[in-house]
């Protein structure tokens, strides 16, 4: 079963770290990724660039309109995410609970649609 584990936050939150606590977070994140890779459950891991670099594209009457900033303004936005392939929802929750910021803001676990269909009742 595949899940997307997403870490949300905002600039205020990410700017509030001390040098030591930021270094500790980076180290904890690296350890988390290493464990996940070694367990054979990591599909992909990506971090988002700064929210100031986000563009939203809309087409209006055939004309491309590009605006700056995340699709949803204000509040929190996606900081990074992991796609994992693991045995069960329970295992995904266990993985998410192991992420360094799970103790603070919480971490989102979202099941991904599978490309295969379970067999229909016969």
């Amino acid at each position: 079963m595949r899940f997307k584990i997403s870490i949300y936050g905002n600039d205020a939150l990410w700017g509030s770290f001390t040098e030591e606590s930021f270094a500790a977070l980076i180290a904890a994140d690296a350890a988390f990724q290493r464990d996940l890779r070694e367990s054979g459950e990591l599909i992909s891991a990506e971090g988002m660039a700064d929210s100031g670099l986000v563009r939203v594209v809309r087409v209006r009457d055939g004309v491309r309109v590009v605006t700056m900033g995340p699709y949803l303004g204000g509040g929190e936005h996606l900081g990074s995410y992991f796609v994992v392939d693991c045995d069960s929802l329970e295992r995904a929750l266990e993985l998410a609970a192991g992420y360094p910021t799970a103790g603070g803001n919480g971490v989102e676990v979202w099941p991904l649609l599978e490309h295969s269909g379970t067999t229909l009742p016969d």
């Binding site: 079963m1 099941p111 649609l113 599978e114 490309h115 295969s116 269909g117 379970t118 229909l120």
Partner: peptide, 8 residues
Amino acid sequence: TSAPERRY
């Protein structure tokens, strides 16, 4: 969580 099944 199956895409084809959801579609069906």
